[in-house]
Design a protein around this nucleic acid. Structure first.
Lengths: 343, 343
DNA sequence: ACTTAGCACTCTCGATCGTTGAGTGCCATC
DNA sequence: GATGGCACTCAACGATCGAGAGTGCTAAGT
């Protein structure tokens, strides 16, 4: 009883189960795959595979179904890379390049993954932590409010309203000249710095502008630092939720737990950053600690300009998914996305 | 056989069916509602109501279930306004006022509606068409690109990258002074104008700046006009999709059609704008022409500053929903949202 | 003219119970 | 170590049946 053939049997089981969605027995296995042995032999192999925990049977005398461990082994050692077709690649390229801004790029990336995999897509916004400040803009809005617009070098734009002390409160008026000066000072201070270093740089600015402007400058500086702080750092794009419903019967527990997990963006973010890895990362079933996703698998890949990953994207589907195809799709979209992103 | 009592019976049927989720028979009706007559009398009334098309029975000898027409009558003539509780109102107020920017406000409004109604929430972004331009900002990015940021007086911010002719192409360099002049001209031209009037105003600017700057100015003007054009005008926030799954069994056809309809933002937008109405608008079951939503009802309300509606929000759930509660929630959130929005 | 009690009738739902067929495990054999 | 044969198990399917809920109708009451 060769180890090799046993693995071959496991691969056959996984592939068949993924396509048919039904427990696979020894007979059909010999019919659909040229294994060159009889069903009885397969049964012996399956007995061993079951003992080792790679497959299981839903009930006595049904076919076998891969366990999480089985899928894991399949992904790690058995799956063959299945490159996308040329038309698919071309579709990705053109669809992404038609995007008009960062939001649009990410939304499109999500749609692509959702469509390619037939599953749910998750796209994380470029991390603010690793990016720099490209420009800071202040627009007066009424007497005592500013609209502060922050633009990062990853193309991300955040805006906040900012209440500032008015002249009547002892602060200085928000005239155009003052603002221009402040803008110049802030932008000069931030030039070439990572966002992480902004608090220090901005504090120096507030110091330098003198007491007359300190109130306004301080308010703006605080706001910017807060805006770029951790809590607000992360955002996520979801796509293809409807695909879940189509594979509804797949989830024993029903869709609710999965949908709930997807709505908890904080949790999703945790999962993504945790899985963030050089190549393509895969979490199978219970490997996700999250309750809602014990019947689901997550395939992620980093993306970012050059060798510098700025965020993560991925696909979420039932444990019984087409891993090679999903991995290929996620990988491809991540690569093209990296290429399209503003450098 | 009084008409009044028959309507009372209809109301009782709707209310019972909404809470129990089961067809309601004549006996339980007399038990749960003090109608003062016997089951037999109720049966007569029900026969008439069925003849008139307001109720129906799933099969012979099950209880009665309201039809779309029944719900319609209920909503139009029978539903009593059920104001929110004080804590609920307070929750809305504080939760909305904690928002940091427009995106955040809308997301929070969505979450509120989703939670209050236990259904799916839809929030449309303030229409660009009816808003004015507050500020136009141009930030140089590299040699031949500008990041153009458009801020409307509803607080909405759109950004686009803009390729401009460089000096080597016969255009003028993107120096700071030039940009400042352009910025001043554009903003002056746009002051007090609706977005609809921008094309004309901007064309004048392009004319006025002279041939040296016409290239850059034209590119920016085109981009802005395009950005604010119809196709890009509308965006939508969804919340509470998971709530759908919980009332899964409600939808005969399964969740897929509903989820698909929700993902088609274009269609949703059409629905919202079509329903946009002064007070609260309700579409029941087949009244939505959309295939996916024939088993669903949509409750919407306009919102906006003062008496000037800028967009629509609403809640989507099964035909058998608690209309009074849903209407109250949607109405309340719309009102508070109007109040919180930047004036 | 409306309401009510009584009653026969209908139809769904759930339980029970063989039957069927797929699939296994084991044993004897090659 | 592989294979053919064989008895065994168990979910799935379908038929049958009784219970219960609810109706419509009729006849009697107010």
């Amino acid at each position: 009883m060769s180890e090799e053939r046993r693995l071959e049997v496991l691969r056959a089981i996984v592939e068949d189960y993924v396509t048919t969605r039904e427990p696979v027995g020894s007979r059909v296995l010999t019919e659909r795959h040229r294994l060159g042995v009889s069903p009885a032999t397969i049964r012996n192999d399956m007995a061993v595979l079951e003992e080792e925990g790679y497959i299981t049977q839903p009930h006595t005398s049904a076919g076998r179904v891969p366990t999480d461990a089985g899928y894991r082994l399949f992904v790690d050692r058995l799956a063959e890379v299945r490159p996308l077709t040329i038309p698919q690649k071309r579709a990705i390229e053109t669809f992404l390049s038609e995007a008009v801004d960062l939001d649009d790029v990410l939304v499109r990336a999500g749609r692509l993954i959702a469509q390619l995999t037939g599953q749910v897509a998750v796209v994380q916004y470029p991390s603010l932590r690793r990016s720099g400040l490209r420009h800071l803009e202040m627009v007066p809005v009424g007497e005592d409010r500013l609209l502060v617009v922050v633009i990062t070098d990853t193309g991300r734009v955040e805006q906040r309203f900012c209440e500032v002390p008015t002249a009547s409160d002892g602060g200085s008026a928000l005239d155009v000249v003052t603002l221009a000066e402040l803008r110049a000072r802030f932008n000069a201070a931030a030039a070439g710095k990572r966002l992480v270093d902004l608090p220090v740089a901005f504090a120096a600015v507030v110091e330098a502008v003198g007491p007359a402007l300190a109130g306004v400058a301080g308010a703006v500086a605080d706001l910017v630092v807060d805006t770029l702080g951790q809590e607000n750092e992360e955002r996520i794009v979801l796509a293809g939720t409807a695909n879940l419903a189509r594979s509804e019967s797949t989830f024993e527990q029903g869709l609710s737990p999965v949908l709930e997990a997807l709505e908890e963006q904080v949790i999703l973010l945790g999962l993504l950053t945790e899985m963030s890895s050089d190549g393509v990362g895969v979490r199978i079933g219970h490997e996700n600690r999250l309750d809602g996703l014990t019947e689901a698998s997550v395939v992620v890949s980093d993306y970012g300009t050059g060798g510098d990953p700025v965020a993560t994207l991925g696909s979420i589907g039932p444990t019984r998914m087409d891993y090679p195809a999903t991995i290929a799709s996620v990988h491809a979209v991540a690569r093209y996305l990296s290429r399209v992103l503003p450098s």
